[in-house]
Amino acid sequence: MNFEVYQIIVPIIGLFSIVLTLKSHRGGNNTLFETLFWVLFWLSVCVLAIIPDQITFFLSDLLGIKDNVNAIIFIGLALSFFIHFKTFVTIKKQNKQITDLVRKTALEIEKLQNFNQ
């Protein structure tokens, strides 16, 4: 089995990213779900780089798509849209929390100003 250059470089980058993800989790920056998601993502990238033909043919057969490259593109797009959706939900939740906090703070400031008068 002849390895291409990317089949060596991509797993090294993937393993480095996994180590960074685990360090980030230990530092309290990632939740367990986020850590597991990124570790599984990078492991998938590593496996796909090492045995690309077997994985792409399996996925194309599983999804019923003729061309194995189209199967990978389809899965990549689906994953991208999922990540985009999760980011959108998180931003929306943060906006609501910020709005609630600003309202609460404004009401407390107004109470203090009325009390001091």
Rank of each mutant, 00 (worst) to 15 (best):
N2P: 02
N2I: 00
F3I: 12
Y6C: 07
Q7H: 04
Q7C: 05
V10T: 05
I13M: 14
G14V: 03
L15G: 06
L15I: 13
I18E: 06
I18Q: 06
K23M: 09
R26E: 11
G27M: 01
N29R: 11
N29Y: 09
N30H: 09
N30E: 02
E34I: 05
F41Y: 13
W42A: 05
S44R: 08
S44N: 13
C46M: 15
V47L: 14
I50L: 04
I50M: 03
I50E: 01
D53R: 08
D53E: 10
I55G: 03
F58P: 11
L59M: 11
S60C: 13
S60L: 07
D61L: 10
D61N: 15
D61V: 05
D61A: 14
L62T: 07
L63A: 14
I65V: 15
D67E: 15
N70G: 11
I72V: 15
I75S: 15
G76W: 04
G76I: 04
A78G: 11
L79I: 10
L79C: 13
F81W: 03
K86N: 07
F88P: 03
F88Q: 10
V89N: 09
I91S: 07
N95G: 07
D100I: 03
L101G: 04
K104Y: 10
I109L: 12
K111G: 04
K111L: 08
K111N: 12
N114G: 03
F115N: 06
F115R: 06
Q117C: 01
